[in-house]
Structures are given as C-alpha cells and as structure tokens.
Design a protein around this nucleic acid. Structure first.
Lengths: 201, 201
DNA sequence: TTATTTATTGAACGCTGTTCATTTGGCTGC
DNA sequence: GCAGCCAAATGAACAGCGTTCAATAAATAA
C-alpha cells in the first residue's frame, strides 16, 4: 500500500509507542494487544516486528515512557510542593500509581524473557527515578550520616512500592486499609527518623 | 466417554487445582493455560467451566492454595525459628516469594473482573496470613501501646511485600541491592522500634 | 529507464479463552 | 431388568492472540 513514506522510522516508533501507551492505560497488560496497536496506527501486524524486533521490545518502550512521565511528575511536585519535600515525594510517587493503575502495574507485570537484556537507554530512564528519590533522601538526612544512602533509598522505594502495590491491586481495600498514602508516609518518616531525620520540619 | 464416575465433583476440583498449581508454578500467570490443565487432567476444555464456572475462578482457587501453603510455612518457621519471632516471620514471608516466584507473583497479577466478588472461603484463606502476622506484631509491641495494631500490621505487610516485589521482579538486582531480606528486616525493626519494640530481644 | 534494495504487507500457523449443541454414562421409577 | 430421565462431559466452533515469512510494492541507485 502507498504508506511507505508516511513516517520515518523514528516517527513510526514514536507513533506506536504513543498509541500503545494509551491502549495499555486502557486495557492493562493482560489484555494489551500488539495487533490492535498496529491497527490503530494504520499499519499491519508485522510492522511492530520490523520496528521493534519483538512485542516485548514495544512493551519495554511503552513502560519506559511511563517512567519518564512518572519522573517528570515527581520533579514538578517537588518544585511546587513546599517545604515538606519527603511528603511531596511520597505523594507524587503514589499518585502516579493510583491515577495510572494499568500503566504502573504493567511496569512490574511485564517479565522479560531470560535472554533479554534491558536496552541501556531504558535502563537510564528507570534509574532517573531512583536518582530523584536518592537526592531527596540525602538532603533529608544529617550531614555526616553513616547510613548507606544508596541502599536506604532503594529500600524506601520498596516501602512505598509495597503500599502502592497493595493499594492498586485492591488488597488494602480488602484488608480495610483506607489511607494507603498516609500509611506509607508514616512508615517512611519512622524509618528516616531512625537515621537522623528531624520530622515536622 | 467412560469418564463419568472417575472422580466426584470434589475430587475433580481438587485434581484441577492441584495440576493447575503445578503448571502455574512452572509457567507463571502470563503463560498459564486452562486448556493445558484440563488436558493434563484427562478432561476436555469445557470441564473447567462446568466445575469452576470460569477460568478466573480456577485461578482464584489456585492462588488460595498458594496462600494456604504460604501461611503454613509461616507457622512452621515461627514454631522452629527461636526467640527472634519477627526475624522468623519476615524471613519465612520472603522465602515463599523467592522460592515460588511464579506462584507469588500470580497472586498479585491476577486481576479479577469488576463484577467478580472473591468467594468467602478464599477471602478467609487470605485473611489467615494477615492474622498470623498481626498476632506477632501485637506480641512484639508493649502492652498498652496506643498504636492501631491492625493498621500497622497491614502497613508492615506492605513494607515486606514491597521488598519481595522488587526482589522477585528483578528490580532490586538492577538497582544493585543484593540483600533484599536483610533490607526488609532492617526497615521492619526500625518501624517497630518507633512503636516501642525493644530490638535484639 | 532499469535494476536493486528495503519497508511493508497479509496470509499462515498454532495457540488462547469462551460458548454451547450434542452425546453419553449413571440413576430412578416402573 | 428395563425405560426414561438428568446431568456431566465433550469437542467443534468462533474470535482473538503472537509470531513468522514469502511476496510485493515503493524508494533509491545506476
């Protein structure tokens, strides 16, 4: 068909990731369909395999886009959220998960084949999020702290992640917990306090 | 075919859950196949729908079995783990996830249709796990504590859950965290300390 | 203008979940 | 012991999926 020069390879890549991102947000990973993305883009099935090599690569690209948006929302909230930066950080982290449950879940539900190494570009985008958190944790702890801040950062991410996960999957609702964000923030402050963080600023 | 009286309805249910549990452990939820379970049981596809009503109901039953095994492992470890009961609890919780990554992930990756209410029996089995943890948290905190122990229990479960999740999905490995269990246990003790728990027993 | 290269197609394959008319074994009442 | 009934079990049918790949058509080079 006469579609050859409609899009450059980059434009086509962008188009598929963009449409795929919208579809994933609507359907969730389990009902996501690569065929449907191609159809919406006006291309045939095989094009995904030409451009990305495999459906897994497309999903990785879509998830990386989620990471970019997520990180940007963290930055925005930190810039506009006032003095309680830890509060802003946790709230923004949480909000992305709760406002985009399918996108957020897909990040963790998409299991890569064993032989599939994450492309460096995608690894960077994911590391950016960790970097934002680490900077804030470092700033929140007293100078000269003996804490391994890199490790504590990742552990605190796990703390908040766990609360997001049980909130988004509905487990918390089943357990009668109605303020997951408040819960997560309380735990984060308790942990930081154990490392010298002065709460209540 | 002459299969009519080979199994009672209960036996058939048990057979399908049992084989399904093994298959799920091998393949993970994304590659799990109801057809394959029926085939392995020597029955045809439709039998799953006769016995369970839908594939989702079978998966719920399989996940409930995981919860039973998980809870039993917690009890065993608490009985044989010595004086550090919080340490035993967290380690046993973690070990189930790490030793049965597909079974553990499936619990949280299986999203029920909106109109699907969890059968009461399954809800009980899941609540049992929470009950075990809550008892230990209550015992670990001082008498007369003003803490909402039910809420703190669920939050601590989220803390450990988060570390399990990032460990099992490989995110921690990507981030360079090599002792997720140690990390989780450290956070749990810090949180409990903030509520009056005397560490190091 | 012709030849070459390369992007794109879409049919084919084997799998999936789900439905449902049909069959068949076991049970009940005669 | 037999006829009739009921419910369990079947398996074909359908629509969708991911993946592959020979064929094709468009863009580029000669």
């Amino acid at each position: 068909m006469g579609r050859r020069s409609d899009h450059t390879r980059e434009e086509l890549q962008e188009l598929l990731v963009s449409l795929g991102h919208v579809l994933l947000a609507q359907t969730g990973l389990a009902r996501f369909s690569g065929r449907e993305v191609a159809k919406q883009a006006g291309y045939s099935v095989g094009t995904i395999y030409n451009v990305f090599g495999s459906l897994d690569h497309l999903i990785v690209a879509i998830n990386s886009r989620s990471f970019e948006i997520w990180a940007q929302q963290l930055r925005t909230r930190l810039d506009t959220g006032g003095a309680d930066r830890i509060g802003s950080l946790v709230a923004a982290y949480f909000d992305f998960a709760q406002e985009n449950p399918h996108l957020w879940s897909a990040i963790y539900e998409h299991h890569l084949p064993a032989d599939f190494a994450l492309p460096p570009q995608d690894e960077e985008r994911r590391a950016a999020l960790t970097g934002i958190v680490e900077r804030e944790i470092r700033a929140a702890l007293p100078d000269g702290s003996t804490t391994d801040i890199a490790l504590l950062t990742r552990s605190l991410i796990a703390v908040v992640h766990g609360h997001c996960s049980l909130a988004v999957t509905g487990s918390f609702a089943l357990m009668g917990v109605d303020d997951p964000l408040g819960c997560a923030l309380a735990r984060v402050r308790e942990i930081l306090s154990a490392h010298g963080y002065r709460t209540s600023q």
